[in-house]
Simulated scan of single mutants.
Amino acid sequence: MSLNTTGLITTVEDGVAVITLDRPEVRNAFDDALIAALTRAYDAAAVDPQVYAVLLKANGPTFCAGADLNWMRRMATYSRQENLADAMALATLMRTIDLCPKPTLVRVHGSAFAGATGLIAASDIVVAVPEAEFAITEVRIGLIPSVISPYLVRAMGARQARRYFLTAERFSAETALALGLVHEVVSAEELDAAIVRHLKALKAASPGAMAATKALIAAVDRPFDQTVLQDTARRIADQRVSADGREGVSAFLEKRKPTWGAA
């Protein structure tokens, strides 16, 4: 089934929720309607038992140019309370992607600017073509990359964020790879094959273990202390006695495929 709403196409293909930005006439820039649609799409994928991974991609030559100009014009007339509500909607989208229990992938075939870099940084696996360009441009128009900053600083580190947040300069896919914003850079001809390769690896993994692993990473992504030590011990103990944990270990010991990868 395919659904096209507010510049977004959503489909489920072989267990993958494919979310496609479809506003090429404005370089896939997002506005309040698209932000809401994206949030709904990720929420739906998170609870769909037929979905094991989520892929974000885009139509047209640009991946995403950031904020839509008409939306920005409307924001300029908003009160502080209206702006706060508007910003919270974007912050909620970023958090929804970040906390999605399913693996989230991004296929970057063109430029990604401003808020688009937040979509990328909040996701699990990002593959880009060498021609892709990136920029965190908010300071150029007197704004700050506020709601996307937790994900970008986590991905790039505070030291690199100081430079790229402040200069708003464009940087290449290879630089994005070195910064940790992108995981892999491949040619346009190899882009889809790279995505398929990652999806194949994810499909072979336990859905329950992947969700637990994502929660684990969020829990330990902080200074290591006794609380983290105890928490990590509790989490692996819980996973070992779960249905997926028992099945995975049994299948390994019995040298067979686990039930989730038998098809």
Rank of each mutant, 00 (worst) to 15 (best):
L166W: 03
W260Q: 11
P145I: 05
A193V: 13
M210G: 01
A218I: 04
G110V: 04
T137D: 12
L216N: 07
A37N: 00
A173E: 03
A209G: 10
M88P: 00
I35V: 14
E169S: 10
S111Q: 04
K200F: 09
T11D: 15
F171Q: 05
L34R: 05
R73Q: 12
A262H: 09
L191W: 10
R197S: 14
Q81V: 09
V153P: 01
A44H: 11
L152Y: 02
C100I: 01
V18F: 02
V139W: 07
S250V: 03
Y164F: 15
G245L: 07
P101R: 07
A128Q: 02
R235A: 11
V12R: 13
Q81R: 13
A76P: 00
T117Q: 09
R80D: 14
Y42M: 01
V139C: 11
A46C: 08
A205L: 14
A204E: 12
P61S: 01
D221I: 04
R246C: 11
E131K: 10
T5L: 15
R159V: 15
R256P: 05
V153A: 04
A29S: 15
D221P: 03
K200W: 04
T20V: 13
G248I: 07
A263G: 14
Y78A: 03
S111T: 08
V129W: 00
E131A: 13
A155E: 03
E190N: 15
F171I: 03
I195T: 07
F165Q: 02
L8Y: 06
E189Y: 06
F113A: 00
F134M: 02
K57C: 12
V108G: 00
R159M: 10
T77A: 13
E174Q: 13
P49I: 02
M94A: 04
Y151Q: 03
R256C: 09
S146L: 15
P61K: 03
R222S: 10
P223M: 05
A263T: 15
T167A: 00
A161P: 03
L34H: 01
L253W: 11
R154Y: 04
E13I: 14
T232Y: 04
Y151N: 06
A116D: 01
Y42V: 11
R23I: 04
F63Y: 11
F252E: 13
F224N: 00
A251V: 11
V127N: 01
V220E: 00
F224W: 13
A233N: 10
A168V: 05
V127L: 07
A29C: 11
R197D: 15
A233M: 11
R154D: 12
S187V: 04
V51H: 05
R197T: 15
R95N: 11
T104H: 00
L177D: 04
R107Y: 05
A233E: 10
G157N: 10
V26K: 09
T92A: 06
T167I: 00
A262K: 12
A218T: 08
R27Y: 13
R240G: 06
L3H: 14
H183W: 06
G245S: 09
L119I: 12
L38E: 03
Q81S: 13
D124R: 06
Q81I: 08
V126H: 00
V47L: 04
